[in-house]
Design a binder for these strands. Sequence first.
DNA 1: TGGGCGATGTGATATTGTAACTTCGGCACT
DNA 2: AGTGCCGAAGTTACAATATCACATCGCCCA
Lengths: 154, 154
Amino acid sequence: MLMGGHDHHLHRGDALREAARERLTGKGEQWTAMRESVFASLAGFDRPASAYDIAEAVSTALGRRIAANSVYRILDLFVASNLAIRVESANAYVANQHPGCLHDCIFLICDTCGQAKHIDDDALSGGVREAASKAGFEASRPVIEVRGRCGDCA
Amino acid sequence: MLMGGHDHHLHRGDALREAARERLTGKGEQWTAMRESVFASLAGFDRPASAYDIAEAVSTALGRRIAANSVYRILDLFVASNLAIRVESANAYVANQHPGCLHDCIFLICDTCGQAKHIDDDALSGGVREAASKAGFEASRPVIEVRGRCGDCA
DNA sequence: TGGGCGATGTGATATTGTAACTTCGGCACT
DNA sequence: AGTGCCGAAGTTACAATATCACATCGCCCA
């Protein structure tokens, strides 16, 4: 799972949830039961999940109906806090595996199975930022995604 | 408007429409009045336009109601034929200024004014494809977009 | 005790995207 | 001319995604 000699702060399961909690509380935000549920649900998917997917999963987990807009609120917070990343070309979200580090991530999304692989390549993303800058553009959020077919589905 | 010594096949107005027509007919597809209207409308926007924006513009231009799903059908065809490109992070479309050439384009989308600037950088997009390939992924459609603030809005 | 405030609940609605089926119009063949 | 085919476009319905406005709850604290 490790890419390109990049081995810091990669979390799973409880450790990931704990890292997320620390990250959020470190920014002065609360780590509530609802937020924990949403994060756990998001992290439990093996592919990008829509807000509605998450709403349904959380509803099942908690045994009561959670509306999508509550999930959106929390996802927006997560994205702003780098706990989650929005996959634009899939209208969906994934949990960030290393919430403490800022990266412009690159996603490889399989059109066949729907799985998304996350890679970091600071040279590439830096190049994109630089190209934007050269065009007189102040880049705040690069979106680099590749649609195609993953190795398993090839 | 020209970027990086890239000066081929850049069209505007009637010339662009003509290039689009040739491209489409060259692929064995028809260039109908409806498709021409949709293309003209799309090309007339100075920023990415949603299918509904286009449906409304075409409806006004033709004096009768055109449903969004008709526009979607045509936009899908345009995208498949490289006459238009979908801006994933904006759920919108732009006309391709040089429909004859295949590029993995890069869009700089201003969060303030909504304008999108199109740049080509084959080194960058090639790097993205290569990175995907190294990860065992068969890239069919890279999506490289940068959200931020344009020079005019800075 | 009650006022402020952030988080969440709730209902409504807007926007974006698809599906299924019908109708239209040209074209080839008879 | 009549007939059948086929792609384009029309029409209706619906699904999926996203936002808005406002009510409520719990907590801190003045």
